[in-house]
């Protein structure tokens, strides 16, 4: 009966405008959601439990503001919800985040971890493989299909030449793309249970940061382009792409 964990992250809604105030992003007025790929990781974790038994723990890292994504996971049906945090932490780099998560996973005796292929804020895709390396585990990334076996899973991974049907023995970290399952919606009972659920808070010893965030800046603005009315101008644009832009 595997101890299953799913890593979930609170991020700005993907339709949110990101403002810069001073030299940092200003997220004070964005709508927050669970990172989209994490919904597929959560569904895969629930499917794993339904197939092989065990318990599912949803884990996040962050301030009490992040309890909402844990409650969302609880409403879907996870058994435990855990938040890793220490009030002395801020601007954690990948080394610190992974150390903190690994500390929690060890404390929970986790045997398989599901996560989204990347988080919608950093888009880095570092956490899944980084956590696996620190645990000494296998990892597969960007999976687009999964079947559950007695001692492992079989996943589908997109490669240049096609999809690789790949066997993975547990323990392992499995990072999920979207599209292979349909994340379930919470029902009324789940939502009521989630309201009463207690978030377990775990601390961790983490290393010092080796990255200094100098600033956040708006993306470089392109010079305004040329706009033509009517398909008759297509040859003009093709000529410009050839002669001015040099891209065809």
């Amino acid at each position: 009966m595997p101890e299953i964990a799913v890593l979930v992250k609170r991020v700005p809604d993907t339709n949110a405008k990101i403002a810069i105030s001073g030299d940092r992003v200003d997220l004070s007025s964005v709508k927050w959601v669970m990172s989209p790929y994490d919904e597929f990781a959560l569904e895969a974790a629930m499917m794993h439990k339904e197939s092989n038994g065990g318990t599912v723990t949803a884990i996040t890292l962050g301030t009490p503001d992040c309890d909402k994504v844990l409650k969302d996971a609880k409403a879907i049906g996870v058994d435990r919800i855990v938040r890793v945090w220490d009030d002395s932490w801020s601007d954690l780099d990948s080394n610190q985040v992974q150390s903190a998560l690994v500390s929690a996973l060890k404390e929970l005796s986790t045997e398989v971890v599901y996560c989204g292929k990347s988080a919608a804020d950093t888009g880095a895709s570092s956490t899944g493989p980084g956590v696996a390396e620190r645990m000494g585990w296998a990892s597969v990334s960007n999976i687009i299909g999964i079947e559950f076996e007695d001692a492992g899973v079989e996943v589908l991974i997109p490669r240049n030449i096609g999809n690789a049907r790949t066997g993975v023995s547990l323990p392992a970290v499995i990072s999920c793309d979207k599209g292979f399952c349909k994340p379930r919606k919470p029902n009324v009972k789940g939502i009521m249970m989630a309201k009463r659920a207690q978030v377990e808070v775990l601390g961790a010893d983490i290393p010092t940061s080796s990255i200094n965030i100098v600033s956040h800046t708006p993306p470089p603005q392109k010079a305004s382009g040329q706009k033509f009315e009517g398909a008759g101008n297509v040859p003009t644009v093709v000529a410009a792409l050839r002669n001015d832009a040099n891209v065809i």
């Binding site: 700005p12 993907t14 405008k17 990101i18 810069i20 992003v25 919608a120 804020d121 950093t122 888009g123 940061s209 080796s210 990255i211 200094n212 965030i213 100098v214 600033s215 956040h216 800046t217 708006p218 993306p219 470089p220």
Partner: peptide, 20 residues
């Protein structure tokens, strides 16, 4: 080092302090 964050809606500029 500059990387896009929030899928390119902002850029993050960092400096390294040691190996990375």
């Amino acid at each position: 080092l500059t990387s896009p964050i929030y899928s390119g809606k902002a850029m993050q500029n960092v400096s390294l302090q040691g190996d990375a």
